[in-house]
């Protein structure tokens, strides 16, 4: 299980200490009224965005399946959980689990037929599925139809989103660095070769889709129970939201978890703290996207992941340099 021995263990220990320390610090600042509820809301939204981006990264960045319907799974989570807590007075944690499972189930349902398609056809099909989910919600008057779902209780706290975000990142990271994750990566790299090596490509595509959808569903439940309101607009649960998530993913780098986290936080903060930026957002992001694809298609972080082995590499380079002051090897 958790390894706390040796250098890797020390790294794990520091990571856990850092995660808890950051949480403690934020709570302390909140108690001291330095961070107001407005700040906590932005922080929570950043965590929710991290969950969304990291889960899309599993589908698109690691498994190589272009999905433009990620917001559809968010929609399922947001609306299902809200219906469960509002109409059936279910405890929130139960609604949260149900949202994740329902989104995963729909993910499999959509994934099984759609994943036979490749590349841009898959992108368009997932876009279609996402919009169909939105139109269906638009037509259910019990959840407010086009007016939106109001009166959702506020169950989401910053702590809950924070730790669920950590859980999502750790689970997806561990999945990626297991045999099953490698199978997904091999599909991205060369589906034909993957099949010839005994990898059931359909199965792993569906698995990636299901896990990704599950976390998007959980993010949706967190979102609707934080904002206490959700409306079936394209910017909130439709195509434009999917594109928002996609932009964060691409800027952070397809297949780079550290990048996903950093960019999700950065792009959630930026419009809040840079006045006037929100207005020009949709003019600047597309240009960034284009420049990125042209000059740095692997994302801002490239292939670098924040990990023990990365730091070890840097460290050993330092050491080598120290031993040979002239800089030769």
């Amino acid at each position: 299980m958790l390894n706390l021995k040796g250098p890797q263990g020390r790294w794990n220990f520091f990571m856990i200490a850092g995660i808890l320390g950051l949480y403690g610090l934020i709570q302390l600042l909140a108690a001291a009224k330095i961070l107001l509820s407005y700040h906590l809301q932005i922080l929570s939204l950043a965590c929710i965005n991290i969950i969304l981006v990291v889960s899309l990264n599993l589908i698109m960045g690691f498994t190589g399946q272009f999905s433009l319907g990620h917001a559809g799974f968010l929609a399922i989570g947001a609306y299902l959980s809200a219906s469960l807590t509002v109409f059936y007075q279910l405890p929130f944690w139960l609604a949260l689990i149900a949202s994740g499972l329902a989104a995963a189930f729909v993910g499999v349902l959509i994934g099984l037929p759609a994943l036979r398609l490749r590349g841009d056809y898959l992108a368009i099909a997932t876009l279609g599925f996402g919009e169909i989910i939105r139109v269906i919600i638009l037509n259910i008057s019990a959840v407010g139809g086009p007016r939106g779902f109001t009166g959702i209780p506020r169950h989401t706290t910053f702590g809950l989103t924070y730790f669920l975000m950590i859980a999502a990142v750790v689970i997806i990271k561990n999945f990626i660095y297991s045999a099953h994750g490698r199978a997904c990566i091999s599909i991205r790299e060369d589906e034909t070769a993957a099949g010839s090596l005994g990898i059931n490509t359909t199965y792993y595509k569906v698995v990636a889709f299901a896990i990704g959808a599950m976390f998007a569903g959980v993010a949706g439940a967190l979102f609707s129970h934080y904002m206490q309101f959700i409306s079936p607009t394209t910017g909130q649960i439709g195509f434009m939201r999917s594109v928002d998530i996609l932009i964060m993913l691409v800027l952070g780098g397809l297949g780079n978890l550290t990048g996903s986290v950093v960019v999700a936080v950065f792009l959630t903060f930026l419009p809040e703290f840079l006045r006037g930026f929100a207005e020009y957002r949709m003019l600047i992001y597309p240009v960034l996207l284009l420049l990125m694809m042209l000059f740095r298609p692997e994302g801002l972080m490239g292939k670098t992941e924040l990990s023990y082995s990365y730091l070890e590499n840097i460290f050993s380079k330092f050491k080598r340099k120290g031993l040979r002051p002239d800089g030769t090897n």
């Binding site: 590349g119 841009d120 949709m282 597309p286 694809m293």
Partner: peptide, 19 residues
């Protein structure tokens, strides 16, 4: 470039013209 990059660019171009 890989098709995924071209498609992302196309989405970007669409958003840019719209805004």
């Amino acid at each position: 470039a890989p098709r995924i990059a071209a498609l992302i660019t196309a989405i970007g171009a669409s958003l840019f013209l719209q805004s």
